[in-house]
Structure formats: C-alpha cells, structure tokens
Write a protein that binds this DNA or RNA. Structure first.
Length: 412
RNA sequence: GCGCCUGUCGUCAAGCGGUUAAGACCUCGGAUUGUGGUUCCGAUAUGCAUGGGUUCGAAUCCCAUCAGGCGCCCCA
C-alpha cells in the first residue's frame, strides 16, 4: 500500500458527525446578527502581507512570528491571521464610507496562525466576527457587546463572563505607558526576560505577566497605585462610563479588568473579552474592542469602528453534542428500479430518504432502516402489484399498508 | 520558540523484556430466503506513530523524527 498522507499539524478535518454543530453556529450567526442589521461579508483568505503588518501592527506576535507568508510573482502574500484588517481593506476599497453610517458587517471563516497547537488552538481555525463602522459613541460598543452576549445565549451559553476595560486614546495611553515605565524603572533588572522586552515594545502588556517574581513586583503598593489609577483622559473616561451605564441598564453582567490588554495594536478605548472556565488555558471565546484609527492607518477616511471575533472551535467545545439527524424514511425493497422511483417521489415531498443500493437481504435492510430512519417504507412484490406501500413506524413498530397516493399525507 | 507528559485495529483500550498482541464498541457475515432495535455464533492488527539502536530476544529499554495533550508566551 502507498504511504498515507496526514493532515498538516495544527489543522483538522471537520467530519460529518460534527458538521451539524458547525451549521448551528453559522445559522444562529446569520439569524442573530441579521436582527441587529449586520450583513455578511466574505473577503479573500490571503491578502498583501503589508495589510497585516500595517493593520494588525508590526509589534504584535501575530505579525512577528505567526504569519503564513509566501511569495508569488514577486508579491508578498499572507494567509489571513484574522479578518478585521481584510474587512477594513474592503470597506475602504469599496467606498463603504459613503454608505449611511453605521455600516455593520459580519464574517465567518478560516484564519491561519503559525503557533504551537494545543487544546483550543490550531494553526487553521475558524472565527465568526462582527465589525461596525462609523459610530464613535459608546452606544456602538454597547450594541456590539450585547450582540456577542445574545449570540452566545442563542447557542445556549449563558454563564460566560464578560470582561471590559478602557485603554484610553493614543494620547492618554502614552502618558500611562510613561508612568508605568517610570515606576518600574528601579525594578527593571528584576523583571523576567519577556517583561524586559515588553518594557520598551509594549509596556501595557507587562501588566498581566504570569511569572511569579513579576507578579510580586506588580503587587508593590506604589506600582499598584499606578496600575489602578484612572489614567484615561476625561473624554475617554466619559465614553467608558457611558458604555458601562448602557450595559448596566441592559443587564449585561460584566466585570472590569484593568489588566485586560488586547494584543493587537489597533485597539483604543473599549476592549473586552468573554471567557469560560471550561476551556483550559485558552479560555477566551470572544475578544474585541474599538479601533478608531485603523481605517485611517490603512488609507481610508478617519472612521471610528468597533468589533469582535469568536473562535468557533472554542465555541463548539462548549456546546453539547447534537444527536445526528435521522432520515424521514428508509425504503426496504429488493426491487431497485421501483425503489429508485419511490425514493424520488418521497424526496419530491421534501423528505430525506435512502434505500439499499447494494440490494441486501430484507432483514438487513430493515435493520439498517431502524438505525438511520424514522419510518421504513416497505415495497415488495405484493405492494408493487397493488400499487401500495407498507409504512412502518420504527419507534412504535406500528405498520400499515396504504395506497401509494396516501403516502405523502401519511408521512406528514 | 521553551518545559513536562503521551502515541497498541475505524474508536476505547489490556499488555510494562520471551504471550499465538486480551477485551469492548463500530463494521461485515450467519442463526433468520418479507419484519428491525434484544439475543447467540463467526470475521477483522504477520502488527504496536515512523526511523535507527541496545539485546539471544523489543509493543515493552535508549535516541531521533513526526503527531497529540498540558503549562509558558500569545490569542479566538
């Protein structure tokens, strides 16, 4: 036998027995997002590398070490590691800024990141997400969070924790970074290697370091004072406060987490995550926030925006297994020609039906029927002669013989 | 990219240096030539992720590679 070829590390087949879960995620997305006026958009799976370098940010891990990049015709192309940059590119390119704001878009599809696979983390994974353009008021942030929570509820996931934070605007954030660096300066030598790197590159990400010695440093009162201080400017604070008031009135439960810092460079003001305790260490199902400068950075007009993405594999692992759907009927017959036309007739009624293409023995066919179908429709010599069928309810064992033209109403 | 753990049939597994490589489920066939889901019989790994090594002898010990899991990093 020839050598078998395996799936690539970090990728997975989505098998027929799991597909109904995926359909459910996708159907609910369409249903729930439509209620809020979101339209689906599908952007290409690969884009110019520069889009992600400029969009996601070249200090991020995603861009620095996790992208699948390749050359073709002297162009550098990259498999999308996330979809916000692509959607923004499309928004600009297709002149959507001329549409009446807000422009509300949603997407689903595969993303690619070169990371070490583990539970809840694959190299090809799927996200479903929304992006809203053109509204700077915190009503947009609130709607987007509400939408996320309601989507999760529609899937039966009620007990997830929403965490929110405000990163401020570029101006107040710079000030905050400066203060953090200042207060940590005497401790610089005691920080772990990663934190020493982050000190220059992205001081905000120092804060949720998991290394015990760093944690201990951050516990010091003078450092806590800076971390806990409300560094954000008045405008940003008002924006954040208004968002919280909407969430309160909408009875969306949330907790504030001052250490919540999304790893993508484009976020400002509102950031949020939705977490589960049942996912192991990769515990975030949803992450998002506001990105008011991204559209401009990618060459569009100054346009405020908010959005989020959810990991569909992670959602699936939280959902209960779905029983596989049974066929409406399975035809039991040793007359293939007759079975073919009967099957077509039942399909024309709108029902799922199969029969035994291998024409096995009657008992085998009935056994198969009992496993896969609600009804066995028996078509033997007598039935054919009399233009009848016998219909057996496989759950109750009740069987009746009826005229062919009564079959549709009987199955209904 | 780093650290630790794991890898036996389609699936779940026993075996821990000498066995004919248990067992269960699934699948297929038969008991049962038009009445299933129960039951009973039978079939299915010259093979133990892959490649080397140690040994008289390896699924069992060692090394490498590949894959999976957990943690770190980061993120959905």
């Amino acid at each position: 036998m020839a050598k078998i070829i395996n799936v690539i590390k970090g990728t997975k087949d989505i098998l027929p027995q799991d597909i109904e879960q995926w359909h459910r995620l996708e159907e609910k997305a369409l249903e729930v997002f439509s209620k809020y006026g979101y339209k689906e958009i599908r952007t290409p799976i690969f884009e110019a590398t520069e889009l992600f370098a400029r969009g996601v940010g070249d200090t991020t891990d995603i861009v620095n070490k996790e992208m699948y990049t390749f050359e073709k015709s002297e162009r550098s192309l990259t498999l999308r590691p996330e979809n916000t940059a692509g959607v923004v590119r499309s928004y600009i390119e297709n002149g959507m800024s001329r549409l009446s704001a807000p422009v509300k878009l949603w997407y689903k599809g595969p993303m690619f990141r070169y990371e070490r696979p583990q539970a809840g983390r694959q190299r090809q994974f799927h996200q479903v997400g929304v992006e809203m353009f053109g509204i700077k008021q915190p009503t947009a942030d609130a709607e987007v969070i509400l939408l996320a929570v309601n989507y999760l509820k529609s899937l039966g996931l009620n007990d997830l924790e929403v965490e929110i934070n405000s990163l401020g605007c570029p101006k107040c954030r710079e000030e905050y970074k400066r203060k953090i660096k200042e207060v940590l300066k005497p401790e610089f030598e005691n920080l772990c290697e990663d934190c020493q790197n982050r000190y220059e590159k992205n001081p905000l990400r120092l804060l949720d370091c998991k290394v015990e010695s760093c944690k201990a440093i951050f516990e010091k009162p003078e450092i806590q004072k800076v971390i806990q201080s409300d560094f954000i400017c008045e405008e940003c604070a008002a924006h954040y406060k208004e968002l919280k008031s909407y969430l309160d009135k909408l009875e969306v439960p949330y907790v504030e987490n001052k250490l919540l810092v999304r790893g993508l460079d484009y976020y400002n003001r509102t950031v949020f995550e939705i977490k589960s305790n049942n996912l192991g260490s990769q515990n975030a199902v949803c992450g998002g926030g506001r990105y008011d400068s991204l559209v401009r950075n990618l060459g569009g007009e100054d346009t405020p925006a908010v959005g989020w993405a959810m990991g569909m594999e992670r959602l699936n692992s939280l959902l209960p297994e779905i029983e596989p759907k049974k066929l409406k009927a399975y035809i039991v017959s040793n007359y293939p020609t007759e079975a073919f036309s009967l099957a077509e007739e039942i399909r024309s009624f709108g029902f799922d039906v199969e029969f035994d293409l291998a024409n096995k023995k009657f008992t085998k066919q009935l056994e198969k029927a009992s496993k896969v179908a609600e009804y066995a429709v028996i078509l033997g010599e007598d039935e054919i002669k009399n233009n009848e069928v016998s219909v057996k309810n496989l759950a109750t064992s009740n069987q009746v013989t009826i005229k062919r033209n009564e079959l549709k109403s009987h199955l209904l």
